[in-house]
Amino acid sequence: MLTGQLDYHRATLLHKLEGLDDEQLRRQMTRSGLCLLGLVKHLAGTEQGWFLKIYAGIDEPDLYDPEADFRIDPDETVDGLVGLYLRTCQRAREVVATGRVDDVVTTPWGAPVNLRAILAHMIQETARHNGHADIIREAIDGATGQSRWLAACRCGVR
């Protein structure tokens, strides 16, 4: 149930990007510079951080400079960032598939956390950013709502 919910929210985020061009995906919609592509970049890093680095203990460099969270650099492409997100989500799925929800790890700040709590956090995190994506998308072109079927097909959710 937890992984299914997370996959649904992952797919919904990608569904919000469909039909928009590069400029629209990069368009900064808030004073802080938030844009749709920035949400994708942020969530790729969040997936990596929680599932790969904290839960699986994989020692690898961050996907991007933590100071660049949500910011899209001119050399970053839509295909590149969406691909990064999809690959990171797939790696996270593989890690989760080999774990157990009661497995406990210690966060870098010393708090114990189990896989169930990480999954619940990532569902909440992705769903919250989908809310931001809803508002941004509506402001860009007026599109509202979501199609569960289309979103599910986009990310391979069953």
Score class of each variant (00 low, 15 high):
L36T: 02
D7A: 13
A152T: 12
E138A: 01
D73Q: 15
S147G: 12
D62Y: 06
Q5E: 09
H132V: 00
R148A: 06
H15N: 15
C155P: 00
D59Y: 05
M122N: 03
L86Q: 12
L43G: 01
L81E: 07
D22L: 12
L17Y: 09
A152G: 13
Q24I: 02
M1T: 10
R91D: 03
K53N: 11
T77M: 07
N114M: 10
D102G: 11
T30C: 12
T46H: 12
L25I: 07
L17P: 11
E47V: 06
L2C: 07
L52R: 03
G45I: 15
C153L: 10
E23F: 10
T46K: 05
T12V: 13
R27W: 12
D7N: 12
M122F: 01
C153Q: 05
V101M: 13
V95P: 03
G145S: 03
E76S: 05
L14W: 05
R27H: 03
R128H: 04
R87H: 12
L115I: 06
E18I: 15
R116C: 10
Y64F: 15
L81V: 07
G38Y: 09
A11E: 05
L84N: 04
V96G: 04
P112A: 10
T126C: 00
T144N: 02
E60F: 06
R137S: 01
G57Q: 14
R154Y: 03
A111P: 10
A97R: 05
R128V: 00
Q28G: 05
M29I: 07
T88L: 10
T98A: 13
D75S: 14
G33P: 07
V40M: 13
L25T: 07
L2F: 15
L37E: 06
D21K: 15
L2M: 15
R116G: 05
L6M: 08
N130H: 02
D102W: 03
G33N: 10
G57N: 10
R26H: 07
S147M: 04
V101H: 13
V104L: 04
L14H: 05
W109S: 12
L20Y: 08
L63R: 06
G156R: 05
G38M: 06
L39S: 04
S32E: 13
G83R: 03
R71Y: 09
Q124V: 02
I54K: 03
L63F: 04
D69K: 08
C35R: 10
S147H: 02
I58C: 12
G57V: 06
R100V: 02
E60R: 14
I135N: 01
P61F: 14
H15Y: 15
T30W: 05
L25Y: 11
M1F: 10
Q146N: 09
D75F: 09
